[in-house]
């Protein structure tokens, strides 16, 4: 089947989609957006969390056909999404966002060429990151990073609806996202840091 939907503000058309394919599979394998991760593919780990019409969902549990005509934001579009929101634009990301062309496929050579570059930076490579993305880097909340995309989408959504969360609020909001490396302490730090920075910005 063919599925038409919007991803990170861009209309997308996926062809030859099997009925059993998940949104996660279509994003990763058909649209060249592998940022959403495939850690369990059964809705337990949250690594594949995306916003579907603004609501955080496990994209592995959404059948591709269910997203017809709907609006998806992935980690790849998070910075632009947050920027639009800060500028008072359409927070759903559907209002004429201009993003870079979606990367179609990740040939290993190219991917590793990119990874090889600029590894020296002490503060990340520059480029525009959302507050929550930068906070994850600064607080040391990223180790292997496999849980990071899902946690970023979930944390950003938490801070959108609750700019000043208590620790218990943060733990509750992120309880659907497993991390095996950090013991969550630095993730707590990152969300607190992002909340503090956001409140300074306002």
């Amino acid at each position: 089947m063919r599925v038409n939907f919007t991803v990170n503000g861009r209309p997308q058309e996926a062809d030859d989609v099997w009925e059993g394919e998940s949104l996660l599979y279509v994003l990763r394998e058909r649209l060249g957006l592998p940022g959403s991760k495939n850690a369990c593919e059964q809705g337990e780990c949250g690594s594949c969390t995306v916003r579907l019409d603004g609501v955080p969902v496990c994209s592995c549990l959404v059948a591709a056909g269910q997203v017809e005509g709907r609006d998806v934001v992935t980690v790849e579009g998070l910075a632009e999404y947050a920027k639009q929101r800060a500028e008072g634009g359409c927070a759903s990301g559907a209002c004429g966002t201009t993003l870079q062309d979606a990367q179609l496929g990740v040939p290993p050579g190219e991917a590793w060429g990119r990874q090889a570059k600029g590894t020296d930076s002490q503060t990340g490579e520059g480029g525009e990151l959302s507050t929550v993305q930068q906070a994850f880097i600064d607080a040391g909340a990223v180790q292997c990073g496999f849980c990071t995309p899902g946690l970023l989408v979930a944390s950003d959504e938490l801070l959108e609806r609750n700019p000043n969360p208590s620790d218990a609020d943060i733990r509750e909001a992120l309880s659907g996202n497993l991390c095996r490396c950090t013991g969550y302490e630095k993730i707590m730090d990152a969300v607190r840091l992002a909340a503090a920075r956001q409140s300074e910005e306002v």
Binding site: K37, L78, T119, S121, G124, F146
Partner: peptide, 17 residues
């Protein structure tokens, strides 16, 4: 800070999968 941090928070870091 991690040299791979930015790629990991933007979803661009290429994992084996």
């Amino acid at each position: 800070l991690r040299p791979d941090g930015t790629l990991k928070v933007t979803g661009e870091f290429a994992y084996s999968s």
